[in-house]
Amino acid sequence: MHNTAKQLNFFDKHKGTKVGLIFTVGSLLLTLTYVIPIISVLPRILAEKLVAMFVDPDPYSNVSKGVIIILSVGLALVITGFLIIERYELKRGKAVHKRLIYLLMTIIYFILHPLGFYIYWALVLDYRNDGQLIFGAINSFPVSSIGFVIIGYLIDRIKRIIINSL
């Protein structure tokens, strides 16, 4: 079913928030496993290797700061790309399909949780690197999980701005 941009039903109006809430609740439940949060931050290793090629790794916080920048830019690019697609669809009089928002949130999952881990490492642990660092993933996971509902809400707000400008 395709709706025109001016006739979005309740679900379409709040689609991003609802999908974000599903990902938030799912992530919060996965925190209870203790294993999934640790596995979820493993993609950070690729970003670390990339940054380490260009930044002096002594102290290692230099690499971590670079990873925070790369993950933040990646997150911004993914969301911006989605918003460009959404604007195009709304101009055509169609709502973005829910599957696209699920795909967006899945991609964001692998950016947001490592980003949350690095921010936690920076702010709470002051870049201390000891054997307990991996447990920072467990501690940061619930906080970064909240980001999905925030991102979903922002997508919905921006969608309303786009609709009002058409």
Score class of each variant (00 low, 15 high):
14 H>F: 15
133 L>K: 03
61 S>D: 10
90 L>G: 07
68 I>E: 14
13 K>W: 04
42 L>N: 02
151 I>Y: 06
145 S>T: 11
140 S>D: 07
130 D>R: 03
40 S>K: 09
24 T>W: 13
111 I>Y: 03
7 Q>G: 09
93 G>Y: 14
83 L>T: 02
1 M>E: 11
4 T>L: 15
129 N>M: 11
108 I>W: 05
152 G>V: 12
58 D>W: 01
119 I>K: 03
24 T>S: 13
115 L>G: 01
87 R>S: 12
10 F>D: 08
121 W>R: 02
9 N>I: 07
92 R>L: 14
159 K>M: 11
31 T>L: 14
34 Y>M: 13
37 P>R: 07
8 L>R: 08
97 H>R: 00
151 I>H: 07
21 L>D: 08
29 L>C: 12
138 I>Q: 08
56 D>Q: 04
120 Y>H: 14
163 I>R: 15
108 I>A: 13
127 Y>N: 00
148 F>N: 02
146 I>A: 13
15 K>L: 08
66 G>S: 02
29 L>N: 06
76 A>M: 09
114 P>A: 01
152 G>E: 05
73 V>S: 10
119 I>T: 08
128 R>P: 00
69 I>S: 08
28 L>P: 04
43 P>M: 03
152 G>R: 09
78 V>R: 07
70 I>W: 05
121 W>C: 00
112 L>E: 13
45 I>M: 10
104 L>C: 03
156 D>I: 03
99 R>I: 06
164 N>I: 00
74 G>M: 12
77 L>E: 12
115 L>S: 01
85 I>N: 11
26 G>E: 08
101 I>D: 11
82 F>A: 00
92 R>S: 10
61 S>E: 13
17 T>Y: 13
115 L>F: 10
131 G>N: 10
96 V>Q: 06
36 I>E: 10
79 I>A: 14
6 K>E: 15
155 I>V: 15
50 L>H: 06
69 I>D: 07
35 V>F: 15
135 F>P: 00
153 Y>V: 00
84 I>V: 15
45 I>S: 12
8 L>T: 02
137 A>Q: 10
108 I>Y: 11
153 Y>S: 07
161 I>R: 14
85 I>V: 11
156 D>G: 01
